[in-house]
């Protein structure tokens, strides 16, 4: 199989639409992670359709609030919670139990 990794830059407004379309086509969520840039974050949502990997890149500032995609992909909760805990990315709408903490760390170590 050819190893195709596609990168698409998107904005926060279209994220939800892309994800809904991907779910409708039967893609699976591979992972979500955050990179620290000089004055914000670069969030990467990786979705796979078969062996074809698509990276949705989104550059946001420190204060931007991102909506959670766990309505479409429930598995996204863990990734979003990790980003919120380690990096301090503001994600709204995670339906995870607030008692659950992924890492017992003080503050946001990778901010």
């Amino acid at each position: 199989m050819p190893n195709i990794v596609e990168t698409v830059s998107i904005g926060p407004a279209v994220l939800k639409r892309y994800i809904k379309e991907a779910a409708a086509e039967g893609c699976r969520l591979v992972q979500i992670h955050a990179n620290r840039t000089r004055d914000g974050y670069q969030l990467i949502y990786s979705i796979a359709s078969g062996y074809h990997l698509i990276n949705l890149e989104m550059v946001i500032s420190e204060d931007t609030e991102v909506e959670s995609i766990s309505g479409t992909y429930p598995a996204a909760q863990l990734y979003e919670q990790e980003m919120a805990e380690l990096f301090g990315v503001k994600i709204v709408g995670i339906p995870e139990d607030p008692r659950v903490k992924l890492y017992h760390v003080q503050g946001h170590p990778m901010k």
Partner: peptide, 27 residues
């Protein structure tokens, strides 16, 4: 899945490992 980003210095800028169990925990 491994994502590595390097910026020309001796240290990597970002190294992300998404291990399979992280994905399986939710299931």
């Amino acid at each position: 899945l491994y994502y590595m980003k390097a910026n020309g210095t001796r240290n990597l800028e970002r190294f992300r490992v998404r291990t399979p169990t992280f994905s399986n925990i939710y299931s």
